[in-house]
Write a protein that binds this DNA or RNA. Structure first.
Length: 469
DNA sequence: CGACTTTGACCAGCGC
DNA sequence: GCGCTGGTCAAAGTCG
């Protein structure tokens, strides 16, 4: 098989009926129609949240739909027809005004939620940092000041310059699995210092002599993102080129585990493992590890953004039980188009791992991950940090506590939304029903869906998240 | 002929 | 120390 031309053919199961459940308290349903909730939200203390006032010009909505208000009448319309058209136009203007108000309200909600989230995340990270420091003082007795200095709340990201050649050979302190390739293992990949461990500082080349204590090396951890998808194909399509370099029989699984290495650039450290689930062999488990040291094609960016958003969430330090639950929900809601999808975080595994379970995700096709790629070509994409699939050269050096991590999630959410034809079709149908009475038929809805999809994909980040329907 | 896959061997970590 | 396991290497084979 030629892995340079990734195989596709994911076939997702018909999902179970959508669960009707009320969201937990820590979840926010952006699409709720419950007016009480909305009023409750809009009455929040704006001063406390530092919500930017909404300007009138911000409310100008460019849907980009290029919707044509079709006039079914002939050119020989009578005066009555004109009057009728004028009244219809007035009615539409009234409806447009209502939609504008609705959009204003939703925008306010989104701003509040965004600000709330950022403040909470900063607060959480500060708490975690304090806890880390306490634990380090207790466990280590301050044995390693350098390590403490290196800790940023429970996570660490080495975003050293992308290996533009053999530089990777100088970074040898990030791998846990012993192998002869350790000397070439990268450091520009996401790493995590767990609660009882720390990560090394950015390798500046002074560690060539591999003097890191073995204990510390053993506890070094990489972030991994595991994607579960139902597929008959031997490998899911993610837009990258992979070369198989090994295959092993893993314990407890009759299906062999295949090891792939990214071949899109020489020296790219990204690897992935592909294995079928022992319980259900139609489920393909793909685990990504490492950071690309090269630009990704649009097709790969979409998938990578999803996995990186998962890694972002993982690396945001929210792996404890309580906040982990929240993040699980958040991941499932933001990154995955279908609410029946699952995102689980495991910190107990040898590597902290985010698992994206797409096995319940109907109508999801790997190719659809490729569609919203255009949004990632925009500047906002630079805010995507801690990605296991993006190299440091593309990114600034923020850490997960930075509020922009929310932008990552929004990016992923946008990708997910725009990749979901059901959502866009529903959006188009809703708009069509409001504006034109839904006379366009299926074809028109499809066109509108495409327009909306394009609009969302081309919209700047601040407005890419759908705020009105 | 180059790129890729296959597969046995090797290495390191870990538990006993 | 020994055996198990996961991860990787590298030679041989395959393919376009």
């Amino acid at each position: 098989m030629d892995h340079r031309t990734p195989t596709g053919g994911l076939s997702f199961l018909i999902p179970p009926p959508m669960e009707k459940r009320s969201p937990p308290l820590d979840e926010m349903d952006f699409f709720s129609t419950d007016d009480k909730k909305m009023k409750k939200l809009t009455s929040m203390d704006l001063d406390h949240l530092h919500v930017n006032p909404i300007k009138k010009e911000d409310l100008t909505i460019n849907t980009g739909l290029h919707l044509l208000i079709s006039n079914t009448g002939s050119d020989e319309s009578t005066v009555d027809d004109k009057e009728c058209g004028e009244s219809e136009l007035e009615a539409m203007q009234v409806q447009l005004g209502r939609m504008t108000e609705e959009n204003q309200r939703l925008r306010g909600m989104l701003n509040q939620v965004t600000t709330n989230y950022n403040s909470l995340q900063i607060h959480l990270s500060s708490l975690l940092q304090q806890r880390n420091q306490r634990m380090n003082q207790v466990d280590n007795g301050g044995k390693n000041m350098e390590q403490e200095a290196a800790i940023v709340p429970r996570q660490f990201m080495d975003l050293g310059p992308a290996a533009a050649g053999g530089e990777n050979d100088e970074h040898s302190n990030s791998s846990t699995g012993g192998s002869r390739e350790r000397s070439s293992s990268p450091t520009n990949e996401v790493e995590i210092g767990s609660m009882e461990t720390t990560s090394t500082t950015v390798n500046n080349g002074n560690n060539k002599d591999h003097q890191m204590p073995p204990k510390q090396d053993a506890t070094m951890r990489k972030a991994r993102v595991s994607v579960r998808a139902r597929s008959e194909a031997p490998m899911i399509t993610d837009g990258c080129q992979w070369r198989k370099y090994g295959q092993k029989m893993a314990k407890g699984n009759p299906c062999p585990r295949a090891y792939y290495r990214c071949t899109m650039a020489t020296g790219c450290p990204v690897r992935k493992q592909v294995q079928r689930c022992a319980d259900d062999r139609t489920i393909l488990i793909t685990t990504y590890e490492g950071t690309h040291n090269h630009p990704l094609p649009p097709a790969a960016m979409a998938m990578a953004s999803t996995t990186s958003a998962a890694a972002s969430m993982l690396l945001s330090g929210s792996m404890s039980s309580s906040d982990g639950l929240m993040n699980n929900n958040f991941l499932a809601r933001t990154m995955l188009p279908c609410s029946s999808s699952m995102a689980t975080i495991s910190a107990s595994a040898p590597f902290p791992t985010v698992t994206l379970d797409l096995t319940h995700n109907h109508n999801q096709n790997p190719l659809q991950f490729q569609r919203p790629a255009s949004i990632y070509n925009q500047s906002k994409f630079s805010g995507l940090q801690m990605s296991p699939d993006f190299n440091g050269s593309q990114l600034p050096k923020p850490l997960s506590v930075h509020p922009s991590s929310f932008a990552d999630t929004v990016s992923a959410a946008t990708a997910a939304i725009t990749s979901d034809p059901n959502f866009t079709a529903a959006l188009a149908a809703a708009i069509t029903s409001i504006i034109g009475g839904g006379g366009g038929g299926g074809a028109q809805q499809i066109n509108n869906a495409n327009n909306i999809n394009q609009t969302i994909a081309n919209a700047p980040s601040s407005s890419s998240f759908p705020t009105s329907t």
